[in-house]
């Protein structure tokens, strides 16, 4: 069913420019956000990507919807009228609901992240955020319960990354990568078709969650590109404007 919907989705939005996720099946999403403008924009953007989105404007409405419906991912603002985001998620978790939750927060990061994750959140995003970041993270969360693939090699186009020998070959040419370049390529390949934002790359490849003021991630990607893409005709690592990077299949 997911597959057919995905095709339909591709047809519907084909080439519309704004698409961040190309082949991921649409999901049932619940957005609980009290700021109407932000909530509407998030909902509209996610719908444009082919997801089915319900929008709740306060905690109690959100709790009712969350308890009744079956969602793939919930996007919850931490500060909500009536029932705040933390309590909402705690209540859901106590009731046995395991739907992945992305917290939106307007507060500082560290304490918030720890508090949010302790309450049962799966990821968090600090306001103001870019839509691309939100979309990429929602997609990552929706795909989280992924079976560990027992593959010994990752492929994309004519590129093969051998997980056992750590050799990377494109066409008939072997590419020599530094350890961190290899890790970056592996991370993108494992999430083939899905956008990875700069902060997701920092978290995933370097295990760092901080706010770089300079374009540190870009420089790493461009180094990787110089080895993986530049000598070849087609570009494997794509830049998704306002969001991040992606390798397509």
């Amino acid at each position: 069913m997911w597959f057919s919907v995905a095709i339909q989705n591709c047809n519907a939005a084909g080439g519309a420019g704004r698409k961040v996720t190309d082949y991921i099946a649409d999901m049932n999403l619940l957005v609980i956000e009290d700021d109407a403008t932000t909530g509407t924009y998030i909902a509209r953007g996610l719908r444009e990507e082919g997801h089915v989105v319900d929008l709740a404007q306060d905690g109690s409405e959100g709790l009712t919807l969350a308890a009744a419906g079956t969602y793939d991912v919930m996007i919850v603002d931490r500060m909500l009228p009536q029932v705040d985001g933390l309590t909402l998620v705690k209540t859901l978790r106590e009731a046995g609901n395991t739907t992945p939750v992305l917290f939106l927060t307007a507060m500082g990061s560290v304490e918030d992240r720890i508090g949010g994750l302790n309450a049962g959140g799966d990821d968090y995003l600090v306001k103001p955020f870019a839509f691309g970041e939100l979309s990429a993270r929602v997609t990552a969360l929706g795909r989280r319960p992924q079976a560990v693939e027992r593959e010994t090699a990752l492929h994309a186009g004519d590129l093969t990354l051998d997980l056992l020998t750590r050799k990377v070959v494109r066409g008939d040419q072997e590419i020599d990568l530094l350890p961190r370049e290899y890790a970056l390529l592996e991370f993108l390949l494992r999430r083939k078709g899905r956008v990875q934002t700069r902060t997701m790359l920092l978290e995933g490849v370097w295990d760092l969650s901080f706010d770089p003021m300079t374009n540190v991630v870009e420089t790493h990607v461009s180094r990787l590109r110089a080895k993986v893409d530049k000598p070849f005709k087609t570009e494997l690592i794509k830049t998704v404007r306002g969001a991040g990077y992606r390798i397509d299949g």
Binding site: D35, T37, T38, Y41, I42, G45, A106, K127, P128, F129, A130, F131
Partner: peptide
């Protein structure tokens, strides 16, 4: 932050 969020979106 909320208005900036709106402007940004």
């Amino acid at each position: 932050k909320t208005p900036v969020q709106r402007v940004s979106l």
